[in-house]
């Protein structure tokens, strides 16, 4: 599925699904999930070489959700791709479920258990290094938060990735400029972030991380690059993207919407969905 409009519809459906999960279970990380919904959609429906019917296929591209708290968006995508029944999303965070509040590799399609920040990139380096050792052509993707980058382990991994010339590794930073306590530049400044990655030997590509079309182009450019550097996609996003009153507000990191807020969020996204569906009919 390549059509940009189709992917916009997908991303909107993912947003609706994840808000339902969070509202039903009264737990979850709404801001970061909404912010990364477009990135995950493009990865899973356009970029990655995967087969949901064969989740352990050896040649599959690997993905690690380093910012594991955005699990609601991730589960929604995986269910829609057919890794497990969509119905199971209703068990999210309920007693005895396998759909716990962070990625769990007992679930088909999930490679690694994450949840503590600052682990994904090291794991991705190991996977990419293993691929090189065995002359395999799969690629490794990992999605990190920007606040997450304060963990020193990321920079140890960044160093290793360029040292081992892991051009089969693509890191993505969900650059929404917010973390739990507020603006990243006030909590622990990251800028100049692009220069930091470059100085660690990475190719850096910047894009609008909530624009499906631009994301596709950026991933294509990263994959097409012929040099031996690891690639970092600095994806500028809006935390809470898609629901106006949630957008760009630190306190929506892990707030659960009230009934009123829930209804407002759903109807805003449904309106957007109508617009896309009309466009599709006109086509």
């Amino acid at each position: 599925m390549n059509d940009v409009l189709d992917l916009k519809i997908k991303a909107t459906q993912i947003r609706l699904d994840l808000i339902n999960m969070i509202y039903e279970s009264k737990s979850g990380h709404i801001g970061g999930s909404l912010s990364s919904a477009d990135i995950l959609t493009v990865l899973y429906y356009n970029v990655m070489n995967i087969d949901p019917n064969n989740p352990n296929w050896e040649e599959r591209d690997r993905f690690i959700l380093s910012k594991g708290h955005s699990v609601e968006a991730y589960y929604s995508v995986l269910a829609d791709k057919g890794y497990f029944p969509k119905e199971e999303l209703k068990t999210y965070c309920k007693f005895g479920t396998r759909l716990i509040g962070h990625p769990n590799n007992k679930i088909p399609g999930i490679e690694m258990n994450t949840g503590a920040l600052g682990h994904g990139l090291s794991i991705a380096v190991g996977m990419a290094l293993g691929a090189k050792m065995d002359n395999k052509s799969f690629r490794v993707f990992t999605l990190m938060g920007d606040g997450e980058l304060a963990e020193g382990s990321n920079w140890e991994a960044a160093m290793a990735a360029s040292h081992y010339k892991l051009n089969n590794l693509i890191g993505i930073v969900d650059r929404n400029k917010l973390q739990i306590s507020g603006n990243t530049e006030e909590v622990m400044s990251l800028e100049p972030l692009e220069d930091k990655w470059k100085s660690f030997g990475w190719d850096v590509l910047t894009t609008d991380g909530n624009d499906i079309e631009k994301l596709i182009d950026t991933f294509n450019a990263a994959i097409a690059s012929a040099n031996d550097k690891p690639k970092l996609i600095l994806a500028y996003t809006t935390k809470g993207k898609g629901v106006k009153f949630i957008e760009n507000k630190a306190n929506w990191h892990h707030r659960v919407p009230t009934e009123e807020e829930y209804k407002a969020a759903i109807s805003e996204l449904q309106e957007l969905m109508e617009v896309y569906l009309n466009e599709q009919n006109i086509k």
Binding site: G147, E148, A150, E151, I180, S181, T184, V187, M188
Partner: peptide, 27 residues
């Protein structure tokens, strides 16, 4: 990045000179 969950937001506001934020970096 834990002041909210630690109920320390008001302390941070009241005593900015005695509050140190390190970001998500526990080591």
């Amino acid at each position: 990045d834990s002041r909210g969950s630690a109920s320390m937001t008001s302390f941070a506001e009241k005593y900015p000179q005695q509050f140190v934020e390190v970001g998500i970096a526990e080591q």
